[in-house]
Each structure stands twice: as C-alpha cells, then as structure tokens.
Design a protein around this nucleic acid. Sequence first.
DNA 1: TAGATTGTTAATCGATTAACAATC
DNA 2: TAGATTGTTAATCGATTAACAATC
Lengths: 206, 206
Amino acid sequence: MDVSKATLERFPLYYRVLRRAHRDGVPYLSSEEMGRELGIRGTQIRKDLTCFKEKGVPSVGYSVIRLKAQLEEFLGIHTPKEALIIGVGDLGKALTKFGGFQHLNIRISEAFDCDPEVIGTTVGSTVVRNIDQLSKVVNSEDITIAILAVPGTVAQELADKLVEVGILSIWNFSPRTLVVPPEVFVRNEDLSTGLAVVAHHAKQGE
Amino acid sequence: MDVSKATLERFPLYYRVLRRAHRDGVPYLSSEEMGRELGIRGTQIRKDLTCFKEKGVPSVGYSVIRLKAQLEEFLGIHTPKEALIIGVGDLGKALTKFGGFQHLNIRISEAFDCDPEVIGTTVGSTVVRNIDQLSKVVNSEDITIAILAVPGTVAQELADKLVEVGILSIWNFSPRTLVVPPEVFVRNEDLSTGLAVVAHHAKQGE
DNA sequence: TAGATTGTTAATCGATTAACAATC
DNA sequence: TAGATTGTTAATCGATTAACAATC
C-alpha cells in the first residue's frame, strides 16, 4: 500500500487512539474526535484513512474495531518481529528495556556491544553478545530491523556491517549521517537535534 | 530571527558538521561539501543560510569559524541553559546522563520523580527530587526547558504543572498528546512511533 | 581570465486545509 | 426528514529543487 511519509508517521498515533477507545469499549469514533485527542484536523485524518478499504460511516464515524484491525494489518502487528540493537550504553539499555514497543509486537531480541565489561551481561531479557557474533546471529534469526545506539565515531563502520548482513531498516541514534545503499532505510533520531529545537523555543519571545 | 520549522531542524546538523571541520582545522567549507556529509543538497543549505549576516564567499565557500559562531549565536550556545526532567525510569536516566547535550551548553540540572525508591538517588550529577518540589525549584533556578519521560497516564497532569510553573518548552517522550497553551512549545518524541516507522520499512519490498 | 561557488528567483513538489455534495 | 459526518475535489500553504546571473 502506498502512503505518504507524513501519513505513515500519523498511523501509529491513530493506532494508539484506537487501542485506547477499544479498551474503553467505544464502538465508533469520528475523525473530529480522534483529531481532538491528537491535535490534528478531522480533514487530515479522513484524507489519511482513504487508503483503507474499511470506510467510515457518514453521521456515525469509524468502527473502532475494524479501523484498528486495518491499522494492525498495515503496521504488520499480527506477525511478531524482532529487532537487534548495537550499543548497550545507557541509551541502548533504556531502549532495550522500553516497554512501549510491545504493542507493536516488536521485540529487541538481540543486543551487541564491543565493551568486554558489558558483553555477557543481561539487559531486560537479552544477553549482550560480542559484536563479532553479528552475522552469525542475523543469519540464523531473520532479523531485518536494527537500532544503532553507538558513538558517532564508529557509527558508519557498524552501519556497513548491518547492511552487509542484510538489515533493511536502521533506527540511528548516533550523531552521524549514515551512508547506506538506497534500498536500506535509515531514520535518524539524533537526540541533540531534538533538544536543540526544544531549547530554541524556550527563548523568551520565539 | 525568523526561520522555517524545516530549516530550524537542520541548523543543529550544520552546527555538528562545522564543529567537526573546525576541530580538523578546515578553514572553509562549501555548501556542497557540507551537504555531502549530511545527505542534503547544497541548494538547500545555501537557502537555509541566507538568514545569517555571515555570507559565503563565491568560489571559496563558508568560513567555518564564522559560520559556526553564527550558528552558536542562533542556537544560544554562548549562554549556559538548564533543563529539568520529570520521570527517572530507564529512559529518563539515560537522557539525564546523555553526554551529547554538552555541545549545546545545556545541562539537565534537576530531576523529579514520584517513586520513593528513586527519590534521593543520584543520576549522573543530579539528585532526584520529589515532584512536589517542582515549583520551588523552578522559581529559584529560572529553568524554562522540561523533558517529560513519564507514563502516558500521568503525562497531561504533569504537563499542566509544568505550564503552571512557567516552563516554555517541553520535550515529550510520553505516548500522549499534551494540551498546553499556545505560547508553550511541545515536541513529541514518542519512541513507539519511531520504531513503527522503521519497522514498516523493513517489510520486504517497501 | 577561467573556474568555482555563491545568493536568489522561478518552477516544482508534497502536504494541509476549506468547501461541499453524498450518504447514513 | 433533519442533522451529522463522511469521502473527495480544489485551493492554499510550505518546503525543495533547478537554473543562472553575480562574484570572488
């Protein structure tokens, strides 16, 4: 299915609202009601949802159960997925233990580091392996998602390894722009950039 | 100074590149060279930089030192800033200890939680306080930036408190859309959304 | 001078919003 | 039927890119 970048970013938000409505036993939700909860206009939401075969009902809204199912299908939530993480510093540890991913049916099942102090320790429910085990593990487990939480100095080198073993999508927390082949997706989540933007708006009068 | 949302997001990236060039003793950098390091077109960068009085030199490029200084001024890096964090779980801890913020001259100087097990412990160099100390601390320290790393269930309630004590900008890691007055800025950094997008691109053939 | 790279305008692309007929 | 909310088209807005004269 073909969806714009901006729309794709909103789908997880819609899914979150629908999960909550479903839990609360709400049967239908209008685009305006969803929008109110997310600070998004109803028009925007209706437009985003046009790609689904599940249609809304005029004067009633969208069936929570059915739209939720539709989003689950789109986001691939029915099939459990595994991700690996490289870099088990404080941030890597926090991501590995983060509970919010379970709704997506994604588990960080493998963690790697190069620090002998860290290798062999347990984080959440995964044992940290030596980075030289990467290719063996990925080949035997069919993992296509990677999280990169390492210093900028080694980021590209490790990205190269990830590409080599067949990773298709990388969530990059390192402060470096990665060079990868066009078929590999990278999402940069540089925290310094985030804080810089937040800080800029904290200046009085901007 | 007046800069588009998209441009503002790129400024920290330019700053990063310039810092590195400066450290390496590079005197000038063209827009194309910067772009290559960031995966951005030269045209884009030149356009972004038009708002500065520091101009590039045709056939030479931009003075690394002077453009860096310009960005430092824009990002307010010459004046040290303090931020507070609410929620000292794994993620909150990782953010508090995160080293990448020091380049921005921003320090997370205060941390709050409501868990008696956590209150009083030290994270990095800050002692975790009881949330009921919030207003006292903010009043005596002139903090305007807040990081919210709490469960969704209590996010709005705490956002209200942050607004009440005069916080101007909130970095929201909780999976909830916050309702705040228009003069308060919120940046949502919901990690589940991030992973959902990354996972979507890991599906073969998309 | 010739070559490189700038600043800027105009064209294009993509995303959001307003408006409204269709429909339950 | 009247009222509410949908799906969709057209208008608008914002961001990116191509093109190129100006300039070192």
